[in-house]
């Protein structure tokens, strides 16, 4: 496996700056997750690494080698496409075997069969090997797409929302499985997702992308607890972080430049102390419940245990944990005390 390094990578489509001067180094064996809203340039970044898109500026290095001018085949990366991109006229087996039959990777037929069956078993599609690729459900196609990347031993894996069309159970299983595979192989994976749970559970590091720029790079813990800006803070966590005006919480010693307070729903406690609020709504999620509160003009969420007895329409007191508070300045950047 190899290290991925982007140096001031830039890509524009006409007026659209899809990726702007992106600097990013992903270490050998690292699981790196790119997170960002739709249109942020996540797919474009992957395509730049794979060589499917030509750089308008900057360089791409794989394993210390400058591959900016190389064709996709020569870069030896594996790509899992957002739209699966299976070969529709082939069976699942032939789809999985396709990369192994490349002249660049001469393998004996027995070896191909062994490897394909191994991967099919891992992804639980061994019973579908003889099916045509078009006669599969969306989730099965996606697994074939992942399998086609896994049969190879590439420099790195590029995965574009590979679990997006699986049901919750399978997604959870595959999440664990993929992480396992990655550890076993020591694989370098650049992984794109919308799903923050995927990002938080699988990533060694997360990069938050918006409008082609990296807003923050760090470990999941880091990005979650110390977001660099309001947009990063909003990207992670469900329900999303509460943003309150400074005067909503009186008597707080805050940095002078601070204009907003950010507080995660799990750091809001309904324990009879703190600010007065009215319960607007209670959403039961099983193990936990989300309580929607109104305090003056502010609305906020509190994440409490599932057995809560608060009723809509009643008055409560909400305590905001002082240590967990984040402060943001006028421009939305975090300021430290």
């Amino acid at each position: 496996m190899a290290e991925i390094r982007l140096e001031r990578a830039t890509k524009t489509f006409g007026q659209v700056h899809a990726v702007r001067e992106l600097d990013l180094t992903i270490a050998d064996g690292e699981f790196f997750v790119l997170l960002g809203p739709t249109g942020a340039g996540k797919t474009t970044t992957l395509r730049l690494v794979a060589g499917l898109e030509k750089l308008d500026g900057g360089r791409v290095h794989l394993g210390g080698r400058d591959v900016s001018a190389l064709a996709p085949a020569a870069r030896d990366v594996a790509f899992v496409f957002q739209q699966y991109a299976l070969y529709p006229h082939y069976t699942v087996f032939d789809n999985l075997a396709f990369p192994l039959r490349s002249p660049l990777r001469r393998r004996s037929p027995q070896e191909v069969t062994r490897r394909v069956e191994e991967v099919a078993k891992l992804l639980r599609i061994e019973s579908k090997l003889k099916n045509k690729a078009t006669k599969l459900s969306g989730g099965e196609m996606q697994r074939v797409g992942i399998g086609r990347a896994l049969v190879r031993e590439p420099n790195c894996f590029l995965m574009d929302e590979p679990l997006s069309s699986l049901d919750a159970k399978l997604r959870e299983d595959l999440r664990v499985e993929l992480k396992h595979i990655q550890r076993d192989l020591g694989a370098t994976i650049l992984y794109v997702t919308h799903d923050q749970i995927e990002a938080l559970t699988m990533a060694d590091r997360i990069g938050v992308l918006e409008e082609g720029r990296l807003l923050q790079v760090g470990t999941p813990r880091d990005v979650y607890t110390r977001p660099a800006s309001v947009s990063v803070a909003r990207r992670l966590g469900s329900p999303a972080i509460n943003l309150l005006r400074m005067d909503a919480v009186p008597g707080i010693a805050a940095p002078s430049r601070a204009r907003n307070i950010g507080i995660r729903p799990e750091d809001v406690q309904l324990n009879g102390r703190g600010i007065e609020a009215e319960v607007e709504q209670v959403e039961h999620l099983g193990a936990e419940s989300v309580v929607v509160l109104r305090a003056g003009e502010e609305r906020m969420h509190a994440l409490v245990s599932g057995g809560t007895s608060v009723q809509p329409g009643t008055a409560v007191r909400a305590e905001l944990s002082r240590e967990a508070m984040l402060f943001f300045d006028e421009a939305g950047q975090r300021v430290d005390a």
Binding site: A73, D76, A78, F81, Y87, P88, S102, R105, R148
Partner: peptide, 24 residues
């Protein structure tokens, strides 16, 4: 994107022609 997948999978233009274009 099928051609792109084939390209990433290391198929030469010649192989892409015979394994994708012609059959399809």
């Amino acid at each position: 994107y099928i051609y792109e997948a084939a390209e990433v999978d290391g198929a030469s233009p010649w192989r892409q022609f015979w394994t994708i274009t012609v059959p399809m």
